[in-house]
Amino acid sequence: MTKPKIKMIVAKPGLDGHDRGAKLLSRIFAEAGMEVVYTGLRQTPDMIVETALQEDADVVGLSSLSGVHNYFFPLVVQKLRENELDDVLVVGGGIIPEEDIPGLKEAGIGEIFGPGTDTASIVEYIQANARD
């Protein structure tokens, strides 16, 4: 039996408009065989969790280049948990200082991918860590 497709939400929390990376990765995840929904810009944590619920997502990918990751990323994890979506893998990317990464991981973000990351390694991580 083939493994079911990984269902992935790519989301841009907050007001940040930089979506080159989010769009590019959406395409690359789709090419890697995942089912991808890109939310577009200006998503609140509630909107992201709502999409995750509706789409029965396995993975939520958050992108932020405006410095709001410490505020938004943990909030998304918390709201997923409140909705009993504990097993949804949350990953993040963007302009995120290395010193912020331990705190984000502690808050429940699986991995943070900074600028210059090889996209294949992101795909690999998700395939290895998404729920079965």
Partner: peptide, 18 residues
């Protein structure tokens, strides 16, 4: 900052963290 650019005041819910 982004709230001004998106036409929101600093105390708008969408401005949180920004």
């Amino acid at each position: 900052h982004l709230p001004t650019q998106a036409g929101y005041d600093s105390d708008h819910p969408l401005s949180m963290g920004e």
